[in-house]
Amino acid sequence: MSAVSVKRSTLIGFLGPSIFALLAIGIVPLLYAVWTSLHYFNLTKLKNVEFIGIENYATVLTDSVFWQAMGRTFTLLGIALPIQIALGLGIALLLHQPGLSFLKTLTRLSLVLPMATTYAVVGLLGQVMFNIKYGVINQLLGFVGIEPVNWIGDPTNAFALIIFWDIWQWTPFVALVLLAGLTTVPAEIEEAAKLETKRWYTVLRYVQLPFLIPGLTAVLILRTADTLKLFDMVFTLTRGGPGASTELISLMIQRVGFRAFDQGLASAQAIILLIITIILSQLYIRLLYKEVG
């Protein structure tokens, strides 16, 4: 273990500012949210704030609309993440192969573009490109003889569209993380393995995979958290519609809290979301990171 014990004051000096900052900025509002969630607290009826115990929680837990939104969020994660990992791994392996270095540098640079793009802009771009009439995508599809697709106005298509943009934006991220992981494999081990077997997946499974696990874990944690947080892109692309077909959990809470102004109910929803998030990240970090360490 490469760590030393230090004086308490030193410890506080190093850690204190961060802990204090996050406590003040993160925890105080959180406590306030808990307080709000136990009240009838409507922004447009602040005269009638009253303590109602766990009624808001009971409403949330039995509200099918809430769980449908939650379900959609996990459906998105369940479909998009495997595709992102598969494509990302493919791209990483491709870029990891020797040769064509100019083109590969170019590819690496273009991979940076989607992940740096402002999320809200992605949604706006989606509106412009996938518009049924003025959109370039339907035009391109037309070239290969496909009839115009109603992307934004059809519930299933709209959800597919969300998945598409999520994949567009985050596959590069996964690819770059895995590529970075591949470069940590000691060259001599990889060479030796490649001499021994011709099958690339054997190399992948037994030689490269162990070095990819930390990256994959990070991807899993970050993507899960970010999907639960996903708001900007969907907000600007579909606003949750048509119907409720793309109303993810953050959009729903935003709608209840900032459009119907029922802050008490929205806080209860947010806190349930937070609990789910914490349980999931606990699971990921404890299970997966232990395996690594």
């Binding site: 949210a33 958290a225 708001f231 809470i253 809290g257 802050q263 947010a270």
Partner: peptide, 10 residues
Amino acid sequence: MVSPIVLALP
């Protein structure tokens, strides 16, 4: 991991 929607209003 905390969603901004949790903290935004409080």
